[in-house]
Design a protein around this nucleic acid. Structure first.
Lengths: 164, 164
DNA sequence: TATTGTTATACTCTATAACTATA
DNA sequence: TATAGTTATAGAGTATAACAATA
């Protein structure tokens, strides 16, 4: 039988977060969001990509030939920030830029077949993080969590696509 | 009568996120974590504080007179980063540093009464964000979300305090 | 020699502003 | 004059390294 009264020595010296910092969903959301983002940055980074790259590729697959301004506005990036992002994708021939003949200021951006393949690869990486990160939850709990988070996102971000 | 064949002008110009970016809990977690963190930074910032300040003050209230190394390790901050953080709190007389007489390398950090009051104020701000952010969820849903997030945090962060 | 707190340095991100070419 | 894309610049934030005092 255990004889410890309150805490073992390990627990006393063990580092534990202040209770308050895990006492509310806001703080947990900040913490977990940061953690999962860090993983995404690390794992995508191993292949030379960032979450931004994933966002751009995913957007191009759904709506082909977007203009740079549209992409930037949709993903809430600064237009100047997008330039370098697209440069790095174009160098690797994952996207193409071609001038709009009707308005030569504009560039239509589109996904190449190689870009589509890379998107699949990045998708797999994200999926792997998902499997790893949500392992303590059952499929039903995962689904429930997703529903709740989606409701929050739809409420706070007008850019969220309509259901279905 | 409208003559557009496929889409109305509003739909063409309306910005909506790619579906894939809201199709999975990982991506939503990243997005919402970022959003809620941005709010915390903004609202705490109005009073001259950051989420880090809140973390430090909360920790000091639960365990008085921690050493700087302990604080840094617990909150996963670099020790050099903590210095400036404590400086800014000490200037405002919200914390005190005093040398450990047994080991003069160490500084024991403690909360002043003013610091305790400020902690209460920051707590209120965080509470306000919580109310605002989770408004689309019922009390039960909020509780359910909290339970799920806490399970994830406990699984992925060994520093999480044991239940109750 | 190792550790605590501190200071100094460098590097990444992001935000802003200026510039060009087209309209 | 205004807009799309680009480039340049500056600032915040963070990570790393060197340092002084003490053990």
């Amino acid at each position: 039988m255990e004889t410890s009264t309150t805490q073992t020595i390990e627990q006393q010296t063990k580092i534990t977060l202040p209770r308050e910092l895990v006492s509310t969903p806001v703080l947990l959301l900040m913490r977990l969001g940061f953690e999962v983002k860090a993983r995404a940055i690390a794992e995508l980074g191993e292949e030379g990509f960032t979450p931004y790259h994933f966002g751009v590729l995913a957007m191009l697959e759904e709506g082909e030939c977007e203009t740079q301004a549209t992409i930037a506005d949709t993903l809430a990036l600064d237009r100047s920030q997008l330039v370098g992002l697209l440069d790095s994708l174009e160098e690797r021939e994952l996207i193409e830029r071609r001038r709009d003949s009707h308005d030569r200021r504009r560039q239509a951006v589109s996904l190449t077949p190689a870009g589509k393949r890379v998107l699949g690869r990045l998708r797999t990486i994200i999926g792997g993080i998902e499997e790893e990160f949500f392992v303590p939850l059952s499929a039903e709990e995962r689904e429930e969590l997703y529903r709740l988070l989606l409701r929050l996102a739809q409420h706070h971000d007008p850019r969220c696509p309509p259901p279905s």
